[in-house]
């Protein structure tokens, strides 16, 4: 079974090698005439102002947490789905209860307004 992972190793080497070699080659070929203006960051042609890592809306963190919750739920469902034909209706009812608990959480999150973007 470990044999199945040898091509993955090969392709990992090929993929990373391709990226690294391309980046190195492109930095070797091509002109290099650096000026101060070229090294400045491009923000629609205006001189850049302020700090680049400004405050990020808290919404992004909320969505990241919600993602964690639902992705965990999703991962629990995979082993269940693989053995579903052996579990039958019993497995369905079990998972119905599990998903319903999470759907209650989902409705709560929605009512709290965490899914609004403004």
């Amino acid at each position: 079974m470990l044999l199945e992972y040898i091509p993955i190793l090969y392709l990992m080497l090929v993929a990373i090698g391709f990226g690294v070699i391309t980046v190195i080659l492109s930095s070797l070929i091509g002109p290099k005439k650096m000026t101060r203006e070229k090294a400045a960051s491009y923000e629609c042609g205006l001189p850049s102002e302020g700090f680049q890592y400004f405050q990020t809306p808290i919404k992004f963190y909320v969505f990241a947490l919600l993602f964690l919750i639902f992705d965990l739920e999703c991962i629990f469902l995979y082993p269940w789905a693989v053995h579903y034909n052996q579990l039958g209706l019993f497995g369905f009812v079990e998972m119905l209860i599990f998903i319903c608990i999470l759907l209650v959480c989902y409705v709560y999150v929605w009512k709290k307004g965490a899914l609004e973007w403004d």
Binding site: S26, I29, P31, K32, K33, M34, A39, S41, Q52
Partner: peptide
């Protein structure tokens, strides 16, 4: 793309 100049911003 290979023949273009490669820039890295100062910051």
């Amino acid at each position: 793309a290979f023949l273009k100049e490669e820039l890295t911003p100062a910051n």
